[in-house]
């Protein structure tokens, strides 16, 4: 069974989340303090973490950084503030997605499903983007013989772009494809993750050759074999 770790200091909210997630068929583990997360995380090894930003003991952003040092597990931040700095701090610490309270529980579940989905549906073994080889079976990224570690979201983002090399993806298209969003939501999420992904896969993130920006529209995959 899929185990979800819910980290929130508001007990009622956490309990309610537990009820909703149980109803959706997940097993839930509730944690109330930021500094209690790491021991439990190591012991339970959950499949996904719902993480509140404001936590006693240790802030959600700090917790997120600690987890990312050890694991690529999907992290969805829960924030009571829609302010940009708050959201960006969480995403830059390694969170895959965020939900602003009060969120629609069905949308939360839908997004969690996207994050939990194993991207094995359509396996074409040799995908290429720029000078990077994507091995979908091994779930790994190889540049010049070296393996680059990516979170599952970053992997999905890269695969989405690589699968249709000619297509220009708008931010909205990427949101619905990679994050499972409905339209008319915030596209800042895409910008932050593209930047994070570039910092990992590009040799020079200032002059990207793998994920190209199309001004006024969105992003597209770099041409395989182009000079780096």
């Amino acid at each position: 069974m899929t185990l979800i770790m819910v980290v929130d200091d508001d007990q009622d909210l956490a309990e309610m989340l537990g009820i909703v997630l149980n109803g959706a068929g997940y097993e839930v583990d509730l944690v109330g303090r930021g500094d209690e997360v790491m021991p439990i995380f190591t012991a339970q090894n959950p499949d996904l973490i719902l993480l509140d930003v404001m936590l006693p003991g240790l802030s959600g952003v700090e917790v997120c950084k600690l987890i990312r040092e050890k694991s690529m597990v999907p992290i969805v931040m829960l924030s009571a503030k829609g302010d940009k700095q708050d959201v960006v701090a969480g995403l830059e610490a390694g969170a895959d997605d965020y939900m602003v309270k009060p969120f629609d529980p069905s949308e939360l579940v839908a997004r969690m499903k996207v994050r939990l989905r194993r991207s094995t549906a359509e396996v074409s073994s040799d995908l290429q983007i720029g000078n990077i080889k994507i091995d979908q079976i091994e779930h790994s990224i190889i540049r010049d013989g070296q393996i680059i570690a990516l979170t599952r979201l970053e992997f999905d983002l890269l695969v989405a772009l690589a699968k249709e090399p000619g297509r220009v993806f708008s931010r909205e298209a990427l949101l619905s494809e990679v994050w499972g969003y409905r339209p008319a939501t915030d596209t800042r999420l895409v910008n932050v993750h593209i930047q994070r992904l570039r910092s990992k896969v590009e040799l020079d993130p200032e002059n990207p050759t793998i994920i190209l920006t199309v001004r006024g529209v969105g992003y597209k995959a770099g041409v395989p074999g182009s000079s780096q």
Partner: peptide
Amino acid sequence: RTPLTTIRM
């Protein structure tokens, strides 16, 4: 926001 989230769920 937090109580509203709970209420909503």
